[in-house]
């Protein structure tokens, strides 16, 4: 464990908590893409299958349990409890156009042609594009609530911090995972224009309003 990965995990944890707070406090899922939340639940499910087979640390296990539980609870809030506030008209990204190619790529490009490894690779590739429905929805609605912007900033920062974690681990531990790094770079790049808007607007007290 290093400081970059720890802050990254905390940023990821914060993002999920911000989202749950937003939904619980406003009793609304307006502006949130259910499609992205489905992809995140799929990412955690396929990545944490080793939850019961390999024990790394208490921290690792607790975080995995929390991430999986929180992602399914988020789906429950979106598609059941606060379903009336779900904006399906603006959440129209065809996620099959993400899942199918990512699934194919995971079969072709992986470290080891074994079920758990291919599922892990699938979850890494899928996570790098899982935010697309959400960013697409923000561009379609033309604006995002401030708390949703904080959610996206924390979520985008987590993988950017993981990039620093991989640089650190390369130099100090000789650890390097090309698949995770490439997917992490793609994932972080997807947030770049949002990061720009967040830093130039939200931090100055304005709302994010994209040219619709």
């Amino acid at each position: 464990m290093n400081i970059f990965r720890l802050i990254g995990d905390m940023s990821h944890l914060l993002a999920i908590i911000i989202l749950l707070i937003k939904m619980w406090k406003t009793r609304s899922v307006a502006g949130i893409s259910g499609k992205s939340q489905i992809l995140f639940a799929l990412v955690f499910t396929t990545r944490y299958l080793d939850l019961f087979t390999s024990f790394v640390s208490i921290y690792n296990t607790c975080m995995k349990v929390f991430f999986i539980t929180a992602s399914y609870f988020t789906l429950f809030l979106m598609y059941h409890k606060f379903k009336a506030t779900y904006d399906s008209n603006h959440d129209t990204f065809r996620i099959e156009f993400l899942v199918v190619p990512v699934g194919g790529l995971a079969f072709l490009v992986n470290h080891e042609f074994a079920p758990l490894e291919i599922l892990w690779t699938f979850s890494i590739y899928l996570e790098s594009v899982a935010i697309l429905p959400q960013l697409f929805m923000v561009s379609k609605t033309g604006e995002a609530e401030t708390i949703t912007s904080h959610y996206l900033f924390a979520l985008g920062s987590y993988r950017a911090l993981y990039l620093l974690n991989w640089i650190y681990r390369y130099y100090f531990e000789g650890f390097f995972d090309l698949i995770a790094v490439v997917a992490g770079v793609v994932q972080t790049i997807l947030y770049c224009d949002f990061f720009y808007l967040y830093i130039t607007k939200v931090l100055k007290g304005k709302k994010i309003s994209l040219p619709a």
Binding site: D50, V56, N60, M63, H111, Y162, D177, L178
Partner: peptide, 10 residues
């Protein structure tokens, strides 16, 4: 490169 078989990252 040393591909860590034991996935210790989240």
């Amino acid at each position: 490169f040393d591909f860590l078989k034991e996935k210790d990252e989240l």
